[in-house]
């Protein structure tokens, strides 16, 4: 491409922007609204997913041990559990510790549990965290089959339901975002089509003079990218302010932990900016091709 052509593309894009102020404004607004909704949608999805990860990683296996084991047998079982592939961490809780914990949780200081019960009825326990929460039932079965373990507990049934729910939530989140994107492309293409329609005679003339499709496309692409990036920047600004104040308010109100890691948020904004520019390109492409068929 000759440098003269590049100057021509920018000059044409600039002229068109100046001429079609109303349509430029409409395009910027459309992109801004779309990216804003998309941004909120993605933030919601990220947070929901984060929350679900939390729930899932809380899942752990309690392995209750038989009563009359020697200390070496107990640590033997611990080592065997840790050797199972897929096991993350493993913590031993002795029966005494368990009783103390219970005392702390339920005792109202009026009764001493140990005295009331006479003997400590609680077993030694291993608290096993798994690397992948989805393998929890398999690993629990393996641990249960070990000699010395008389029972395992991981919230059977509830865990499976939780996974079903989180899976559907993730699928719905992705569908939601895809639908938003398709809607945004359609809306932006329609707005850009108006701008192109206003210049259809010029495009027809260029085609008949012998201009290539790319030569005609470039100024429109530049215009589309510029306008939609601007729209995306505006919505990112609004999003950053809104989410920032949400984080500072919610953090000391609820137990919910919002995603606030600076790197993640910055990447999200960059992706939104890219998506905005991309929407401009795709919208221009769709709208323009019809007019190039001469």
């Amino acid at each position: 491409m000759r440098p003269g052509s590049i100057i021509y593309f920018f000059r044409e894009a600039g002229k068109s922007l100046k001429r079609n102020r109303l349509l430029s404004f409409a395009t910027i607004t459309t992109v801004a609204v779309c990216i804003l909704i998309l941004g909120f949608g993605v933030l919601f999805t990220i947070n929901a997913s984060n929350f679900m990860n939390h729930l899932e990683s809380d899942v752990q296996i309690r392995a209750f041990l038989e009563q009359d084991l020697t200390a070496s047998q107990i640590s033997d079982i611990g080592r065997k559990i840790e050797a199972i592939p897929g096991v993350g961490s493993n913590k031993f809780i002795s029966r005494d510790e368990a009783l103390q914990q219970m005392q702390k949780d339920f005792g109202r200081r009026e009764y001493d549990l140990k005295e009331t019960l006479g003997k400590n009825p609680l077993p030694h326990t291993y608290m096993v965290k798994v690397k992948n929460p989805r393998e929890v039932s398999q690993l629990a079965a393996k641990i249960k089959s070990m000699p010395g373990v008389y029972k395992v507990n991981y919230g059977q049934g509830t865990v499976e339901k939780l996974f079903k729910v989180t899976r559907w939530m993730r699928i719905i989140g992705i569908i939601f975002i895809v639908l938003l994107l398709v809607g945004a492309v359609f809306l932006i293409a329609t707005t850009i089509r108006l701008a192109i329609f206003a210049r259809r005679k010029e495009i027809y003339l260029m085609k008949l003079i012998g201009s290539t499709d790319w030569f005609i496309r470039w100024p429109f692409f530049l215009e589309g990218i510029l306008l939609s990036s601007l729209g995306a920047l505006i919505s990112i600004g609004i999003l950053a302010m809104a989410y920032g104040s949400l984080i500072s308010k919610i953090d000391n109100l609820f137990f919910i932990q919002l995603v606030s890691d600076a790197g993640t948020i910055r990447n999200l904004y960059l992706v939104l900016l890219g998506t905005g520019a991309g929407l401009g390109v795709v919208g221009t492409w769709i709208s323009l091709n019809r007019f190039l068929k001469v």
Partner: peptide, 10 residues
């Protein structure tokens, strides 16, 4: 314009 759109030199 007609010369520009076919890439003629300035």
């Amino acid at each position: 314009f007609a010369m520009e759109v076919v890439g003629a030199s300035s």
